[in-house]
């Protein structure tokens, strides 16, 4: 079954989108009576000489799905930050999106991002496969940046056995708007992957406009592919929050058990 696009909006999808919009409008941006520090804020990295925001609505949608599906207390509105923004330390999870090459980061930015990673921050790189972009060029620049940030860490493919693929949903491979390769790419720091790169246009699958329409079709297509993209997005966030929690012995003893 084909997914509706912004070019062909059925009445049914319009109504569902309207309902979702109403929910979003009515829902408080913070659904727990606790501090801002408790809440996860999805943050996106701003950088120069490139397109840092090729999928502007994707993280908001991911935040909503996190709120809807998980117990993670999440700010529904993402934030954008540069490496030197004072509030970077409030956001230990950072997304870096782009669809074309970008200028090398100044040393001050590199130093701050390097400290960010070493203190426990996680950077997720997601090349956007846009029509007029150069995702291959972005990926190459982003991977060079990762190597500069963690010069002692060699990039490594993240196979389906990695805990990232079990951190909330059980997945067999990464999926985004495009099917992409069978693995993710990671740069380890200690026992965790500090930088994770997709090559699946994950944000493209998540992007949805205010009317509830998917902004970009998934290829080769199907509800299952888009759902798996959401699941991968949630798993990446859960991995940043829980690390290898799912590798603890009790979880390995119940590999097939359903959730309560």
């Amino acid at each position: 079954m084909n997914h509706p696009t912004h070019a062909s909006l059925s009445r049914r999808h319009f109504l569902s989108a309207l309902g979702a919009t109403a929910l979003l409008t009515c829902a408080p941006t913070r659904l727990w009576s606790s501090s801002a520090a408790t809440h996860l804020r999805l943050a996106q990295l701003i950088y120069s000489d490139g397109n840092w925001q090729p999928r502007p609505t994707a993280l908001r949608r991911l935040a909503w799905e996190l709120h809807k599906r998980t117990a993670v207390p999440v700010e529904l509105e993402p934030v954008s930050t540069t490496p030197t923004t004072a509030g970077l330390g409030r956001n230990p999870l950072l997304f870096m999106l782009g669809d074309r090459p970008f200028a090398p980061f100044p040393k001050a930015h590199l130093d701050r991002l390097r400290r960010y990673l070493r203190l426990g921050g996680t950077l997720i790189i997601d090349p956007a496969h846009t029509v007029d972009g150069d995702p291959t060029g972005f990926r190459a620049h982003a991977h060079n940046l990762a190597a500069e940030l963690l010069p002692d860490a060699a990039s490594t493919p993240i196979q389906a056995e990695h805990v990232i693929f079990r951190s909330f949903y059980r997945l067999t491979r990464p999926t985004g708007r495009i099917r992409g390769p069978e693995t993710l790419t990671g740069w380890p720091l200690g026992d965790r992957m500090a930088i994770i790169s997709t090559d699946h246009d994950l944000a493209g699958a998540l992007a949805r406009d205010n009317l509830g329409n998917w902004e970009f079709p998934v290829e080769p297509g199907g509800d299952r592919q888009r759902e798996n993209a959401f699941r991968l997005g949630i798993n990446l966030v859960m991995y940043a929050l829980c690390l290898d929690y799912k590798n603890e012995q009790p979880h390995l003893r119940f590999p097939q058990s359903p959730a309560p």
């Binding site: 951190s167 909330f168 949903y169 699941r231 119940f254 359903p258 959730a259 309560p260």
Partner: peptide
């Protein structure tokens, strides 16, 4: 519970 990796 479909597709979840959660345990009781």
């Amino acid at each position: 519970t479909s597709g979840l990796s959660l345990i009781p």
